[in-house]
Design a protein around this nucleic acid. Structure first.
Lengths: 348, 348
DNA sequence: TTGTAGGCGTTATCAT
DNA sequence: ATGATAACGCCTACAA
């Protein structure tokens, strides 16, 4: 009852050893009902003893289902968002959820897999590996190659990017509501001169957070001041320099809503340079709730995104498509205001 | 010259359309020399027009090479190291390097891929997908299942974990040297009462950083004080509470070497609580050089690990194995002292 | 309930 | 230089 050490145990081997045909083995292993209990038990036991595992390649070939989900996680210099640990945290949630459903993840790394046949486009790479679906993170929606993928019949889901296509959905935090909450929180503390530092405005989260800021400012009758909108790119440096400009204004803001925690940290730094105390002289609200946010000095008030939750939502949306759903509703997850010590009543 | 829209273009289709046999098409596409220039050109052009890509599954089946590298990135609660963005940064370097060599990454997510055949062990999961090699991140080397994988003939490489086995190597920063450098730096600034906060001592980096601290302390004649060694787990909270204990000592240290930046940030926080100024009253050195290290207040002096470099080194080591190398030397990468503002001359 | 056989898309080994 | 043809490991009608 032994096999060669280095050799892969095949279904044929199992058949030989258990004295039935390969067809029967396959049926037994795959839980078909039309196989006698004794046979099934014998086969399963043997499979366990020999530590048998089916060859995914063979199975994929015949069933045309790979049980693998493709992941495009763009980390190039063009899309620096990915240095952001944010996406990795989303990916963890995605992985856990999809894993529990029997799928593995293929992280696309090569533009010419197997060194063959020239550069691979999004769609080509998916087809090459026969992935059952794909999740797109940090991609730019304008890309023509990407549009071809979305036009195909392959289930896709975007994270933090508004994708539309045949079987395509996306997940995103409720950025507008988050920004509104931020402004309202500051307003509630008595602030009337509230500025914002935006994220990249070629990303939907960036645009939405700005929109929420504007809407709520207007609604609260704060009036719109062009000079109170500074443009950033989510990163520390842009937050710091934007804050410097803001604080140098004739009528500087008493509160700043930054569209990311990293920028908020930059704001705090700029405030320190200017000899301002947080939150005494300036209140700061961030966005994301990254890990160190709570460990800053002072701990940062921010809008917490449910990062693993976004991953789980993406996974669910994708699996629904894979299982043949015909609709692909975009899903929006709520964000939560976490009040810590970087905000206080105005002048307080 | 058209194919069905949703249908996959196969090599057979290519053969039909170009009027040659599938064998010839395969040879033409794979760059064999024994095919006439005209035929080759015709086939390649057709393949491009039809956006043909070979089915990885079929190819894997016959060649027994998948051009896929498996990734075990343990993110469970048991191994919380993975919340650490550190490993993700390593993974980026790994991915880029391995991608340029024509490989893609399979991120293992499911314990029962395809919902079949019971839970999969490390080895089983690798065999299932026929990966050409595997990289192990955040795993515990004691695991019996893991040892079975390492005993197999499958090329493996560990990151920050000392693995040994048939075709197994590992990559790691020079943690001992890093700790030595930290102590020497502080000693050079006049510090004589230097404490440390360790990382997890069931990880090699944790042990090595402590060893370096001890060795250099002894060498410099600082004497060994048991009370100057506090135990942490790499995370903020442990750094904070360890620092509180250290600072409450009768003869508190004037400098603390923390085995991670997160703990160093915890130290800074504890110092602030105690009314101590950094670096005036206490110097702090971290380890890792995580992104926010430079943006802290004060910017953190730390030992920078080359995270993408570790990934690249891991990739190279693994590919060497895949290509048939018989040796698997562990590789150690140097760390670099980055002096910022959290360290100063004693009492300065 | 079980066996047989065809086929999934390639590559590789023969001939020719 | 090219064309058959046999694998690769598995699933799934269809037959028995």
């Amino acid at each position: 009852l032994e096999t060669m050490p280095g050799e892969r145990t095949t279904i044929r081997e199992l058949a030989r050893l258990s004295g039935v045909s390969v067809g029967t083995v396959s049926r037994a292993l795959n839980g078909y009902t039309d196989v006698s209990p004794e046979t099934r038990e014998r086969v399963i036991r043997l499979a366990r003893e020999l530590d048998y595992t089916p060859a995914a390649a063979a199975r994929t070939l015949v069933t045309q289902r790979s049980h693998v989900i493709g992941v495009f996680l763009e980390t190039g210099v063009g899309r620096p968002d990915l240095q952001h640990p944010f996406f990795h945290e989303v990916l963890v949630g995605f992985k856990d959820c999809i894993g529990s459903e029997g799928y593995d993840l293929l992280l696309f790394a090569s533009e010419r897999p197997g060194n063959g046949y020239g550069d691979h486009s999004y769609l080509k790479r998916c087809r090459h590996h026969n992935v059952d679906g794909a999740v797109l993170i940090g991609v730019s929606p304008e890309d023509e190659e990407l549009r071809r993928l979305l036009r195909s019949e392959l289930p896709c889901v975007g994270v933090d990017v508004e994708l539309s296509g045949t079987c395509t959905g996306y997940v995103m935090s409720d950025n507008v509501a988050g920004a509104i909450t931020a402004v309202r929180h500051l307003h509630g503390l008595g602030h009337r001169r509230i500025a914002t530092i935006t994220g990249l405005l070629d990303t939907k989260p960036g645009v939405d957070r700005l929109r929420g800021y504007r809407e709520e400012s207007q609604r609260l009758g704060l009036g719109y001041r062009d000079e109170y909108v500074a443009y950033g790119d989510y990163y520390f440096e842009s937050g710091q320099s934007a804050a410097r400009r803001l604080l140098a204004l004739d009528e500087p803001p008493t509160a700043i809503f930054a569209a990311s925690d990293m920028m908020a940290i930059g704001v705090i730094r700029a405030a320190a340079e200017a000899g301002l105390r947080i939150p005494g002289d300036l209140s700061v609200v961030g966005f994301d709730d990254i890990q160190i946010a709570q460990h800053m000095h002072p701990p940062l008030t921010t809008l917490a995104q449910d990062k693993p939750g976004l991953g789980v939502a993406a996974a669910r949306a994708l699996l629904r498509q894979v299982d043949g759903a015909d609709t692909a509703e975009p899903v929006t997850l709520p964000v939560e205001l976490v009040v810590r010590d970087s905000t206080a009543t105005v002048g307080g």
